[in-house]
Simulated scan of single mutants.
Amino acid sequence: MPHADTLTVVHHDDTRTRFKDVRYELHRDGIRIWSAEGEHLVTDILMTQAYRQRATAG
């Protein structure tokens, strides 16, 4: 299950919902998101953007 530090969901009406520090699963019918606030199911998705910050080795 992918992890994202920041996940942005762009809805069909061009509004955006942002989540921080989440795990998520993409499905044909939408995206299921687990965050500190609980579980979310979003079905009106136009696009998603997930970012993961990783510490550099060295």
Rank of each mutant, 00 (worst) to 15 (best):
Q49A: 02
T43C: 04
I33K: 07
S35Y: 07
T8L: 08
L26H: 11
A55G: 13
K20E: 14
E37N: 06
I45N: 02
T6G: 01
V10K: 00
H3F: 15
Q49L: 10
R52I: 09
F19Y: 12
H3Q: 14
L46W: 05
L7K: 04
A55S: 11
D21G: 05
F19E: 06
L7N: 05
F19C: 04
D13V: 04
D29Q: 10
M47Q: 08
A57C: 14
P2I: 02
K20V: 13
W34M: 02
D29A: 10
Q53A: 13
M1Q: 13
M47L: 10
R23W: 14
L26R: 10
T6W: 05
V9R: 06
R23D: 13
D21V: 03
H3E: 11
D5K: 00
Y24E: 03
Q53D: 13
Q53T: 13
D44Q: 04
D44R: 05
E37W: 08
W34G: 03
M1L: 15
L26I: 11
T8M: 10
V22A: 03
G30N: 05
P2R: 04
T43N: 01
G38Y: 01
Q49D: 09
A57P: 12
I31K: 07
T17D: 10
T56M: 15
F19H: 01
D5M: 07
T17Q: 15
D14V: 04
H27C: 06
F19P: 01
M47H: 05
I45Y: 01
D21F: 08
I45G: 02
T15W: 10
E37Q: 09
T43R: 04
T6M: 09
P2F: 08
Q53K: 13
F19S: 03
I31L: 01
A55V: 15
I31F: 03
V22F: 03
L41E: 08
G58P: 08
A57E: 15
V22I: 07
Q49N: 07
G58R: 10
E25N: 11
T48M: 03
A36E: 04
H11K: 13
T8C: 10
D14A: 14
G30I: 06
D5L: 04
